[in-house]
């Protein structure tokens, strides 16, 4: 790959403005090295030797370049206990509140969407068993959904490599996983069977609607990939997938306030999350 020339100050600003408007990710001159490296990589991959031509390609989204560039700017790999501050928020603040709203015997429903290869929904299950003292007092149903059926098959198999487990203590790995070959571990059947996996299309109301309503939805690092129209529809589908008073957790670079006015912002000690207001509430 030939090295692209350094971005001028104006080019850097132009790109950062585009990225901010499109995704909410904020970069500036202080992150020049980080930005330059990724743009150089994408210019090389697209065969564009000059920034103006590359930027024109980006604005036109030729060849899905917006998604490619976002991929270059985000951490695509997933692993257990990723963004665990939201899991702390779940056990400390969200679930106690949701549990108070439940009728006796009514399950608390949690949705991980998209769940990719299962790290997130299994993390939720594992976290609750370890960190939510009330876990024995309620039925908790965890559903993991994705549009990618190959990812769902991998999630159901419950096999993970070392990188996926890097945030878990050796004690947790020993208690919840069994060795399954060189550098591979399988999650315990009890835990594997505690998560139900389904396929879903987030921009298809019938597809999301078929899952019923949830108390908490984890929908991290996917809406930034959608165009404005799809993002708006997905936000409404997610709103509809929540019980009144239910919560949605987004990725740390995402803000629902930039996407849809439907949700109320809730600032908890560990995380900012979004809530479907209760009926009649002006929250």
């Amino acid at each position: 790959m030939s090295e692209a020339p350094p971005l001028t100050g104006e080019e850097l600003r132009q790109l950062c403005e585009f990225l901010y408007r499109r995704t909410g990710m904020a970069f500036d001159e202080a992150k020049r090295y980080y930005v330059q490296r990724r743009v150089t990589e994408r210019m090389g991959a697209t065969g564009e030797g000059a920034f103006p031509a590359y930027f024109a390609r980006l604005r036109a989204d030729a060849g899905g370049e917006v998604e490619q560039l976002i991929n270059a700017f985000t951490v695509n790999e997933t692993y257990f206990y990723r963004e665990d501050h939201q899991l702390r928020c779940l056990s400390r603040d969200i679930l106690p509140e949701r549990a108070r709203a439940k009728a006796p015997g009514e399950a608390i429903r949690i949705w991980s969407v998209p769940c990719a290869t299962g790290e997130e929904p299994y993390s939720i299950a594992l976290w609750l068993l370890e960190n939510w003292p009330e876990v024995d007092a309620y039925d908790v149903e965890i559903v993991g959904s994705d549009i990618d059926t190959r990812a769902l098959e991998a999630a159901q198999a419950g096999l993970f490599g070392r990188r996926a487990l890097m945030r878990l203590s050796p004690d947790l790995v020993e208690r919840y996983f069994t060795p399954a070959g060189p550098e591979r571990w399988r999650i315990l059947d009890d835990l594997r069977e505690s998560v139900r996996f389904t396929s879903v299309n987030l921009v298809e109301p019938a597809s999301t609607g078929a899952h019923g309503r949830f108390d908490v939805v984890f929908c991290r690092n996917v809406l930034i990939y959608f165009d404005d129209a799809s993002r708006r529809l997905a936000a409404e589908n997610l709103y509809d997938a929540l019980v009144p008073g239910g919560y949605i957790c987004l990725g740390h670079t995402e803000s629902m306030s930039r996407i849809s006015p439907l949700f109320a912002v809730r600032r908890h000690a560990d995380a900012i999350v979004y809530q479907r207001p209760r009926e009649g509430s002006r929250d």
């Binding site: 009514e106 399950a107 068993l129 149903e141 009890d190 835990l191 998560v195 019923g212 309503r213 509809d240």
Partner: peptide, 16 residues
């Protein structure tokens, strides 16, 4: 284990 896999019978329908 208190985590359940089967769809909850109480899962409310989102469709009017």
């Amino acid at each position: 284990m208190p985590l359940i896999r089967k769809p909850s019978p109480a899962a409310p329908d989102a469709v009017p």
